[in-house]
Design a protein around this nucleic acid. Structure first.
Length: 89
DNA sequence: ATCATGACTAATG
DNA sequence: CCATTAGCCATGA
């Protein structure tokens, strides 16, 4: 576990349910504004797929981006979280 | 140190 | 939607 990776996970863990952030946004929070690609690398290797909400990190252009279990599942999960968070809060 | 990889970004076609 | 080009950077071999 590198220092950079820990910061990435910590930042991603802080993304609220029903909301999304971009790889670039996460990169900037880690202090490396141009390391969006490196952020993607870290998330791909993330040790806790179900705990770390890496599905809330999407592309700058709005598309889902990649996902361990497929981008289409990623989109559905995001919509589910959005509707659920609206009902709960 | 060097090299390849990739869940990126931006621009272009 | 797809493909290419160039820039970018942590990671692992």
């Amino acid at each position: 576990m590198s220092f950079f990776a820990k910061k990435v996970y910590r930042v991603v863990l802080g993304i609220p349910m029903g909301e999304v952030r971009t790889y670039k946004w996460v990169a900037k929070k880690t202090g490396r504004p141009k390391a969006s690609r490196a952020v993607a690398n870290i998330l791909k290797k993330n040790p806790l797929p179900l705990i770390i909400p890496c599905h809330r990190v999407i592309r700058k252009d709005g598309s889902a981006g990649g996902y361990l279990w497929g981008k289409k599942f990623k989109k559905r999960l995001l919509e589910l979280e959005k509707t659920l968070s609206e009902q709960i809060f």
